[in-house]
């Protein structure tokens, strides 16, 4: 990996990982590794997620009952744990998304007042 690449990667803001996980699960259940990959891929690999930090976040979301766990088989027929968005999680995703939009908008206005 080049140094340039490293510079372009951004550390996640506190708490945004939860939001990303919820969003990632919106299309359907996925297992842990797939979630990490999806976040990386969808952000054009700009977002650098230390994959391990996914797990406390997953557990936090399970505890709040925003996602649920189910057993399943992965694409290569291995047993895997799938994480699924719950009804409450769906609702929470909406709330968090609109919060995020407001926050991003507000910060953007501050940073570029001329526009």
């Amino acid at each position: 990996m080049s140094t340039k690449e490293e510079r372009e990667r951004i550390e996640l803001l506190q708490g945004t990982l939860d939001l990303l996980i919820l969003r990632t699960l919106l299309p359907g259940p996925a297992h842990g590794h797939a979630i990490a990959k999806a976040i990386e891929f969808n952000s054009d690999e700009v977002l650098q997620v230390e994959q391990g930090s996914l797990y406390p976040a997953l557990h936090r979301l399970i505890k709040r009952r925003w996602i649920a766990v189910e057993e399943g088989t992965s694409e290569n027929n291995r047993r895997a744990k799938f994480y699924r968005l719950t009804r409450a999680g769906r609702k929470q995703l909406k709330v968090e998304t609109s919060k995020w939009d407001k926050l991003a908008g507000a910060i953007a206005r501050i940073l570029r007042p001329a526009e």
């Binding site: 230390e50 994959q51 391990g52 930090s53 797990y55 406390p56 557990h59 936090r60 505890k63």
Partner: peptide, 17 residues
């Protein structure tokens, strides 16, 4: 390396509960 410190991850996960 990409996963990070396994022990810390476990600790943090445990703390969640």
């Amino acid at each position: 390396r990409k996963f990070g410190n396994v022990t810390r991850v476990k600790e943090e996960t445990r703390d969640v509960w």
